[in-house]
């Protein structure tokens, strides 16, 4: 996590919460895995350690992490990874759809664009065009 360049808007503690949720959704942080120590994370992000503590408290309140006394903060074994994955996918889809609408395109066209991206994009169509000629 490097907040130096990309200081987004909104409270920093929420950005940290979001980053960690994202890491769990992507499997970069597994259940029962230890989060970086407060000072490590503060140092690598260039933020006040109190802000990291605030974020960790929030994660625990949300039922995402738990604290082992004197050992640090861990991802809960029962962390709802699938639900988090769905939430981030939804957020990405909403962004994607906003762009589709802004461009004045249809759902069918959006689906087609997505399929093209997944299946090798424009090169597929290029091959077909070559075959036709």
């Amino acid at each position: 996590m490097h907040a130096w360049e990309t200081r987004k808007k909104g409270p920093v503690y929420l950005q940290i919460v979001d980053n960690i949720l994202h890491d769990i959704a992507r499997g970069k942080l597994a259940p029962d895995e230890k989060l970086p120590s407060v000072r490590e994370l503060a140092e690598s992000m260039g933020v006040n350690p109190n802000t990291v503590i605030h974020a960790y408290t929030e994660l625990e309140r949300m039922g995402i992490t738990y604290t082992r006394r004197g050992q640090g903060t861990y991802v809960r074994p029962d962390v709802p990874q699938d639900l988090l994955r769905k939430k981030f996918l939804e957020a990405a889809a909403r962004k994607f759809w906003a762009e589709v609408e802004a461009l004045g395109l249809s759902l069918a066209e959006a689906v087609q664009a997505l399929e093209e991206v997944v299946h090798g994009g424009s090169s597929v169509r290029g091959d077909q065009e070559i075959r036709k000629s």
């Binding site: 907040a3 000072r39 503060a42 260039g46 933020v47 350690p49």
Partner: peptide, 26 residues
């Protein structure tokens, strides 16, 4: 500064370099 941070100590920092330092300030 973060490495040597102690929760009980109070720190006042004057700076022009607001961008980089802003994450540090409460």
């Amino acid at each position: 500064l973060i490495r040597t941070w102690r929760s009980e100590a109070t720190t006042i920092i004057s700076t022009h370099e607001v961008h980089e330092a802003e994450g540090l300030f409460e």
